[in-house]
Simulated assay, not measured.
Amino acid sequence: MKQIPMTVRGAELLKQELDFLKTTRRPEIIKAIAEAREHGDLKENAEYHAAREQQGFCEGRIQEIESKLSNCQIIDVTKLPNNGKVIFGATVVLVNTENDDEVTYQIVGDDEADIKSGLISVNSPIARGLIGKEVDETVSIVVPGGKVEFDIIEVNYI
């Protein structure tokens, strides 16, 4: 199986979610199932079926997170020498050459991506266009609205 790149922060968030699911959510669901069982006939017991469905989702998510964590490669860019190159985990400040709009993105794993927070997936068109480029380079990136040119004005490993 291919290793999935992940930032230290992304791995930590997954570990926190896993801990919550195992120590809080799972016991809550088990308790709900026990309480629903006490109501008698399980065939027509909506609470019981709802709790069992939640249990299925919870257990599925636990397996998914455990799988991701066991197959991830945690990359800590703060421990790498910053040579001005855009790599996974780097935070990049770009200026749109047409309108001088400045944007900052950190290139992260798929699970961590959140465009509103400036976290873009390493597999996104913007990240793919930036990886390997260097500070002071101009890059042309094809986005859904067409082609956009950006100047890379800063590359930080933070």
Rank of each mutant, 00 (worst) to 15 (best):
I29A: 11
K85P: 01
H39S: 07
R61C: 00
V122S: 06
T138S: 13
Q3D: 12
I107S: 06
P5E: 00
F88C: 04
K68G: 00
E47L: 10
K31F: 05
E53M: 09
V143F: 11
G84Q: 04
E28C: 06
D114N: 15
K68S: 00
Q3K: 15
Q3M: 13
Y157T: 03
V77R: 10
N96C: 14
Y157Q: 10
A51D: 04
E44S: 15
K2Q: 07
N96G: 12
R25Q: 03
D100T: 09
V108A: 03
I65H: 08
E38C: 11
T7Y: 02
A90E: 02
E98T: 09
G40E: 08
D100K: 14
V135I: 13
A36D: 04
I4A: 02
L94M: 12
E59N: 08
Q106Y: 07
E112G: 11
S67I: 06
V108N: 04
A46R: 14
E53N: 14
I29L: 15
E154H: 04
V122D: 09
V155L: 03
V143C: 06
G56P: 10
F57H: 07
G132C: 07
I74S: 01
L94A: 13
S67V: 08
L42K: 14
S121C: 12
I74R: 00
D110S: 11
P81L: 03
T91N: 02
I75Y: 08
I62D: 00
I87D: 03
T138V: 05
N99H: 09
I158H: 01
E38S: 14
I120L: 09
M1W: 05
Q55K: 14
T91L: 02
E44L: 08
Q63Y: 09
A32F: 04
R128G: 00
D110M: 10
V77I: 12
E12F: 00
I62S: 10
L42Q: 13
I74P: 05
T104L: 02
F57W: 01
N82Q: 09
A11C: 01
Y48K: 08
I107G: 01
P144I: 06
T97L: 14
G60F: 02
L80H: 10
R25D: 00
A51P: 09
V142Q: 02
I75C: 10
S121I: 10
R61T: 02
I115Y: 07
V148K: 11
N96M: 13
A46C: 11
V122I: 12
N83Q: 15
D100L: 13
K31A: 03
H49E: 07
M1H: 13
E102V: 14
F57M: 02
E102S: 06
K133N: 12
L14E: 06
I62F: 06
I131L: 15
S117K: 12
A11N: 02
T7M: 03
D136G: 10
S67N: 07
P27S: 08
I141S: 07
R37S: 05
L21V: 14
D110G: 05
D19S: 15
I30R: 07
Q106P: 05
R37P: 00
